[in-house]
């Protein structure tokens, strides 16, 4: 973390108020992103003013992935919010321009939901000669998130 960078956890009900306060203080919206944790989603937002970047994080429950839209405060937030919707399956009430899950045309729907099975990587070591010809059990699918 650099000197001009901070991360702060805030409550979900402070999400819009924090955005409004930063907009009023002359900050611009830098980015918004999600992270799928084991028992919740993390959404991080970054604001910048004069190269000082501040980052705020909210925890969103997995069973109710809902985040109020910041469209009224930062009109440009619609791209990030549609991305959250498409990649993490969020419901964004108040979204000014809602693509209905079609902004990012991903092959796998909601790839960052935390329940996507990825292809198993190749084993690190080649099987020994002795093992050649023996039947190998298929790799176990890995559950991410």
């Amino acid at each position: 973390m650099s000197a001009n960078e901070s991360f702060e956890d805030i409550e979900l009900d402070q999400w819009v108020a924090t955005a409004s306060r930063h907009r009023a203080d002359g900050f611009r919206l830098v980015q918004m992103t999600g992270t799928a944790r084991e028992d919740h989603f993390e959404v991080m937002i970054s604001y910048d003013r004069n190269y000082d970047c501040v980052n705020f994080r909210v925890h969103v429950p997995r069973d109710r992935p809902e985040l109020p839209s910041l469209s009224v405060v930062f009109p440009a937030s619609f791209t990030y919010e549609n991305e959250l919707k498409d990649l993490f399956g969020f419901n964004i009430p108040g979204l000014a321009l809602d693509y209905g899950g079609n902004f990012l045309r991903t092959k796998t729907k909601i790839p960052f939901s935390g329940s996507v099975t990825l292809k198993k990587e190749k084993p690190e070591r080649a099987p020994s000669r002795a093992a050649a010809g023996t039947k190998v059990a298929p790799p176990t699918p890995v559950r991410e998130g």
Binding site: D86, L97, N102, L104, T106, K107, F112, E144
Partner: peptide, 17 residues
């Protein structure tokens, strides 16, 4: 009305692997 996603490659998810 823009829309993207025609060449989405999932590189962010790849970083977790």
């Amino acid at each position: 009305l823009p829309s993207i996603g025609y060449v989405h490659r999932g590189l962010e998810l790849l970083a977790e692997r």
